[in-house]
Nucleic acid binder design. Structure first.
Lengths: 218, 218
DNA sequence: GGCCTGATTGACCCGCCAGTCAGTCCGCGC
DNA sequence: GCGCGGACTGACTGGCGGGTCAATCAGGCC
């Protein structure tokens, strides 16, 4: 604070030459988030010790605080990183699909099931559900970023089917959650009861898709 | 004891001192469980302080330990008390129903929706989901006592429909979760997103029931 | 009233852990 | 190779909360 910047040592083209430290920083950040995901999903938010996160990430605890303000903000970042993703990709797929809407719906649901097969996802969902009461802001974020767009996309598919005469017209105001629910619940069930009541996800998915098509057809 | 301030009991324990200690004990037990339910569902398991439970129950913290071994066993008892219940009643209703299976199914689902309308239930479900990782035994208990019987009952209804020629025969090996899921997810959704994305549960329920009947009919 | 016994209490103990910061390390520019 | 400054560390602190227990209270009985 004693001096204004009388000497700017910044070298040329900082973007082109990341430098060892720059690379390190992003790698650290990712390592912390990954480690935190592991710990949070295994222990739950409150029971997770930042010491354990640090050990898993191979760093000292203090370092976490160079990258994140608090345990809470780390948690939010974990959710953000792991759930936001392929939205554009999926929307594009739906927008450009050329076959029948039944096929589109089938493929779309298969994709969703594939997504929830990722081992990280169900524990994350469970955690968000469990912590929802104490993190209403997180619920809101989750709704705005994941749930709502997914519902809108699904609604678009249903409308497409109606317009083409494939689906019954009064499906237009159907609560989209009714279509979705088995995907999400299936994921949670696998997590909670999978050990002693295993589910054949492929069969489950096909039955579900078949069920939906029956329910929607004109 | 010179400066002993009279520790007149709180508003609790009015003049009513008719019964014996036995009655008092059961009442205390219930009071603790009720208070714990409130706190657990509002704060989550780990964040709930037994001091707060005690205050809410109008007793001292030490008293909780006269009735329960630990915070954990109190938690399990809360779940037990609030979710086990009307099983016989419901099974009897299904067993003796005389109308069409479509009517039976409709009524049964309406009952389930009614049950999940109880304000205690969704937070409890959310909590169980959230704590599942750390309490696998609770998951097991929950599955054996609630999920499995519910699924078996539903399966019986589906079979009844098939036998009477109302439902398609190949619905027999359908994953029952697919039918259930919207009920449970609806409850969780109301809890998590109800504040900013309200759901008309009655309409949701009717749409869901209609959807299921379409999916099942012969 | 006096006494016994079991119920109740809440101050206290103690381990735990989020968050801090003084000290150390090390890449980088010169 | 040298020293600056940012990156990193981990011992430490402060408070929190589960669980305990010595002290106290009160119902029941004579």
């Amino acid at each position: 604070m004693a001096s204004e910047q009388h000497h700017i040592p910044k070298p040329a083209t900082p973007a082109a030459v990341p430098g060892k430290r720059e690379l390190q920083k992003e790698a650290r950040r990712v390592a912390i988030i990954d480690a935190a995901l592991e710990e949070f999903t295994a222990q739950g938010f409150t029971s997770t010790k930042l010491d354990d996160v640090a050990v898993r990430a191979g760093i000292g605890k203090g370092t976490i605080y160079l990258y994140f303000d608090s345990k809470e903000s780390l948690f939010e970042e974990v959710v953000r990183r792991n759930l936001l993703g392929s939205r554009e990709l999926v929307e594009n797929f739906v927008a450009t699909f050329e076959g029948s809407t039944a096929e589109l719906l089938t493929q779309h649901f298969r994709n969703m099931y594939l997504f929830t097969q990722n081992d990280k996802i169900p524990p994350l969902m469970a955690m968000i559900t469990g912590e929802a009461v104490r993190f209403p802001a997180l619920s809101r974020f989750f709704y705005d970023e994941i749930i709502k767009p997914s519902q809108e996309l699904m609604r678009r598919i249903v409308r497409r089917g109606i317009e083409r005469g494939e689906f019954r017209a009064d499906a237009d105001d159907l609560y989209i959650q009714i279509l979705f629910a088995p995907v999400l619940l299936g994921a949670l069930n696998r997590l909670q009861y999978g050990a002693f009541a295993p589910i054949d996800t492929a069969k489950y998915a096909e039955q579900h898709i078949d069920f939906i098509l029956r329910g929607l057809k004109a």
